[in-house]
Each structure stands twice: as structure tokens, then as C-alpha cells.
Nucleic acid binder design. Sequence first.
DNA 1: CCGGTTACTGTAACCGGTTACAGTAACCAT
DNA 2: ATGGTTACTGTAACCGGTTACAGTAACCGG
Lengths: 340, 340
Amino acid sequence: MTRRSSSVTIRDVAKQAGVSIATVSRYINQTATVSPEVASRLDEVLETLKYVPHTAARNLATQKTNAIGLLLTYNIYGDFFAPMLRGIEEVIADAGFNLLISSNLSRDGNTHSPALGPNNTDGILGYADSLTESVLAHFYHTKFPVVLIYRASPPHLPIPCVTVENKAASKEIVDHLIDVHHRRRIIFLRGPEHQEDSYWREMGYRTSLEAHNIPYDAELVWPGEFEREVAQTTMIELILAGVEFDAVFAGDDDAAIGVLAALREMGKRVPEDVSVVGFDDQRSSPYLTPSLTTVRAPTEEVGRVAAQQIIKLIRGGQADPLTLLPTEIVIRNSCGCQSD
Amino acid sequence: MTRRSSSVTIRDVAKQAGVSIATVSRYINQTATVSPEVASRLDEVLETLKYVPHTAARNLATQKTNAIGLLLTYNIYGDFFAPMLRGIEEVIADAGFNLLISSNLSRDGNTHSPALGPNNTDGILGYADSLTESVLAHFYHTKFPVVLIYRASPPHLPIPCVTVENKAASKEIVDHLIDVHHRRRIIFLRGPEHQEDSYWREMGYRTSLEAHNIPYDAELVWPGEFEREVAQTTMIELILAGVEFDAVFAGDDDAAIGVLAALREMGKRVPEDVSVVGFDDQRSSPYLTPSLTTVRAPTEEVGRVAAQQIIKLIRGGQADPLTLLPTEIVIRNSCGCQSD
DNA sequence: CCGGTTACTGTAACCGGTTACAGTAACCAT
DNA sequence: ATGGTTACTGTAACCGGTTACAGTAACCGG
């Protein structure tokens, strides 16, 4: 066939304007000055021909892709995902990069290499456990820019990461339950095992108990998996089993919704009989009944910061080893307070 | 400098294996058979060298990018976004494409050409009004594959689109209000002007009224903008203005949340005094008080279908001019029914 | 033994840009 | 006039793949 692509190339422009392709390239990229006459002639030709440089050709020549990859895990549910993406997209677009997204559930099973990497991106953002440790190690040793989101870097791989402060806010919200509402038997619903957020939230919970001389009681800590249904059935079982408690720290807001449903179902009043608190401050949390006391995580900011970090790295700079974004507790009614 | 990129190229592989680069290429792409000895030698070399073909080079040579673009508008809030993306990503990944995302809020203001187009994607998915009509026309005439999501194609541009059935379900839910709950003065809260979903939902509302011989009353139709706050203040004003009504079709679930808040604030009971229904069935809708009667839109399916269509187009096939995904009303308590 | 397949392989010309290097002309100071 | 700048421009060699075309050897039927 040898049919050239129908698109207009730099040579077409050069011919039309009566200059060499090098001049066209230089003018377009502003990498050298061009005589005024040539400039205006080029302006005109570029306009009439509607020339757009071919990305692949440019990438090949410059050895840059101008794209940043975002690696996701399959479980992109949840409210927090859209804001995170917005944060990322915003700064990436402003910096003139494109965003490439891939989730690692790809059909090729567990090929150790992800769909995004050095050959099609200038750097990648790895969400949670979307990257295995071995891939991470490989990227690290080849100095390929990577920033981790919602995940700490593995032991011997000092890869920059950005996530939110879980422990302090968890302690604070449990403190609130104890200090303000005099709760002492507080159930904690864990997230998925080996999940970092979950781990640190539990640490916050334990730290608060310790600080108040309340012994840790294994009978009060159960799986909630950050999921509504799981939390709901767990709570129902606990109640049926006769476990005594006066408050629930649900792990996250999704689980809190399940807890609320379970308590209503079992005839317990919130917040009179039991206080309930969550973590995340989802969009719907203010509108639950009662409105949910929880912890606000600056999700969009996480995205923004992560994007800034990877861009800094790509530009040859240093990134911060660890960015822990502050969280704040937001008091509503489910704990027993009377907010507006 | 002339420093070659550190990455291993097809020539390195060829040299190591003692064959020509053409042979390596053919083996990798399975475009021709290769003798068994060469094959096994290549397997080995590929493995030890960890060769990964350079995407840009391949794109340049084949004139394909193997990527699909998704154009977004700035307002990617909302629950519906994550599922839509999941649907898209799922089928795109399965088909071996990459997903490129860009929102059109880019700093270069309203440059008429979007960041994603023929030079860096094989086809694009345009969400809502992310593409201007003139760009759409240009793509259409150059036969560049485009599929529209949540938007109908403009008059003279038969571009495939996939969206959700709004009118029938809206009529059905208003029918329910009238037939089952004997409501007659039903407020409708419009979405943003010129928004297609909003238009068809209003058509459904009107059609239902007509079918029941209830005259359309302009006093009952007000802006809700699909936003919580707007809906809430609108409702409060209406009540203060003394408008009589016994039901509200909120336009969408977000607005319904605002309506619920306004009614509570003004001392009206739902559903005893007024029935409230929404549209979308957001994740939180079952957990509102009372649980929200609404319409379920198959958002993830929209993403999947759109992705399938664009892939079909890219592969040279025909796409369906219009895919209208069915919606279904889901009855809960806010209308007055007693669901579980 | 010979012509025609079949199976495989290599050479070299692309794809569409960027950029090192060399060259030209104009200008300036000596 | 001479040499040294400065300002601009063109030639051609890349970047790392794909693929048309040509070539070779082995095999097969007559």
C-alpha cells in the first residue's frame, strides 16, 4: 500500500513555506530564533495546513513521552476516587503532561510488568498496591520516576510517597468518644488485612485507649473490610452474641453506613445508646441519619501533591520522601454532639 | 552528548541472538514464522535482556497509537464517575488498548483543539459537552473515530453515542407518584439549562402529567441544577413563598438530598406530607432517611458499551448510531412506599 | 536433474520528528 | 581589507521500530 497517512507532516509545512524542516521544527519549539519574514510565513502555513506535530515521532526523537501514568488496582469504587483523579489531572494538565491510566487487572494475568512504564510514560503514579515490590525495585534501580499514592514505600526502597495521616486523627476521634461522650467500650472495625490505612487507624485507636488507661479488648476488634455489608453483618453478629459496647469506630464511612443500618435494625439508638464514627468524610456522610462524625481526608489534595511530586522528579528534581497530608476530625451528630 | 538511551533496543536483541532486527520484530509480533532454534534463542535473549519494545517507535512505524482517549469536562464530581471509568477501563484493557485521559479545563483556555486527538490516540470517547461542535465536525469529516457519552450527536453529525434512557423512567416514576400515592402537585427541579439529561427528564415529567390530565403548572418547575445546595435553597424559597405541593421530583439524587434537608428544616414530613423522588440511584441513596425512591442508571454499563463501540470503530467496523441504555425505577421509602 | 514451492531470513527504506554540525551573509572593530 | 562575531538556515544523522522486497536453502513432484 505505502499509503502515507493523510495527516500533514513537517515536510509539507517546510515545502509550503519554502524553508527546511529544521527551521520549521525550531520555530515550533522555539528552540532558536527565526527571521521575522520566515516566522510570519510559517504562521500562515501552519494555520492553513492545520499542522499538528506527530506525537509518536516527537516522542521517539526526544526520548520523552510527555505522559504520566497512573496505575490503579481493580477496586476503584468509592467516593474518594473521583476527587483524587481530579487533583491529579488538574496539575498534570497544567504542566502540559498527558495522563495515562491503567488498572492492573489486565487480562495478561500477573505478568510482572505493568502496562505502563518507562517505554510509554515519563514517570508513574502508583496507587496503593498496584505495583509489586519487585517491579518497584526494578524501577528504583533504573531510576525511573515513581511516586506512590496511599501506600508507604517498602523497606529498602526509598520511593517518594504521599498519603494521609491516619493515626493521629484516629486517636483524636477515639479521644473524643472517650473524653466528651464518656464511652469506654468502643468497637473498632478493621479494614482489609495488610491495608496500611487500616493498620494506622487501628494504631490510633489503640493509642487512644492506652492514653486513657482502657485495656485493649480483643473482643471489640473485628473485621469491617471498609465495606458496608461486611460491617453490617459483623455488627449484627456481635449484638446477637451479646457483646457489650457503647460506641463504634467503623474504620471508614462505608463501614459506618453498615453499622448505622445494623444498629437501626437491632433497635439500638444512635447516638443515644451508641456513638458511631467513621473515617473519610464521604460526600454523603453529612446527610446520613444521624449525620456522621468522621475524619476528613484531603483526597483531592493527595492527588495534587502526588502529581506535583512526580513532575518534580521527571524534571530532574528531588521529591519529598514522604508527604503525610493532615486530616481533621469533623464533629456531627452520630457521636452524640449537637452540630448544626 | 549523543548518549543513547539506556534502554535495550531491538538491535541489541538482534545482535545478541545473531539474527537480523527484522527477524526479531517478526517473532515478537508473530507476523511470520521463525525457525525453532531461532525462536528459542530469542526467547532466552528477550528474557535476559528484559527487552520491551519502544512504544513511540512502534507507534510511528505502524501509525497506530494503541490508545483510546477519554475527554472529560471539569465537573467530574459525583458518584457516577468512578463506575463509568471502571466500565471503560475494563473493556479497553481487555482489548489491549491504553486509556488516555484529559479534561478540557486545560490552561490553554479554549484552544479549539483538545489535548487528545488523531495524533496521539486511535479514537476518542467524548463525555458530555467536552467536545465542541466544530471539533466534532472536524473529526467527523476526517473520519476519526469518536463515540459520545452522555450526549446525543449534534444535528448533522451522525456520531455514535451512548447514553441512558431518561424520559421513560422519569415518566414512570412520576406515574408512580400519581397513581400509587395520589400526588397531583408535583414539583420538578430542573438540571442545568441545555443539559440533555435534564431536558428528557422534564419531558418525562410532562408526559406523565399529560397522561393523567394534570395541567402543566409553571409554578411547580424550578431550577435545581442537580446540586444539593441549589435544590435546598430553591425548596426553602418555594415553601416560604407559600407554593402548595405534595411531591417533588428532584431531577437527580444530589438535588433530592437537598430537598430532603430543606423539607426537614421547614418541618415537612417525608413521605407523609410530601413524597420525594430522585434520579441516578447514587451509592448513598438507600441510606438516606427516608431511603430514596429513584431511578437506577447503569453507569458502569454505559462505560463498557461506549468502550466497545469505539473499539469496533477503530477496528474498522460500524458502531450503533445510538445506544440508549435502559433504566429502572427503584422503589424505596421516600415516595411513601414501605420497602424493606 | 530441474522448475516450482515452501520456509525462513536479511537489507534497506520508511514512519515524522529533533538536533549536531556546517555553512552563509551581514555586521563590526581593527 | 581582515578576522571575529552574530543571526539565521540547511543537510543529514539520528530516535527504534515495521515491512516490502529480494534472496537462499531445502524439499517435492515429474
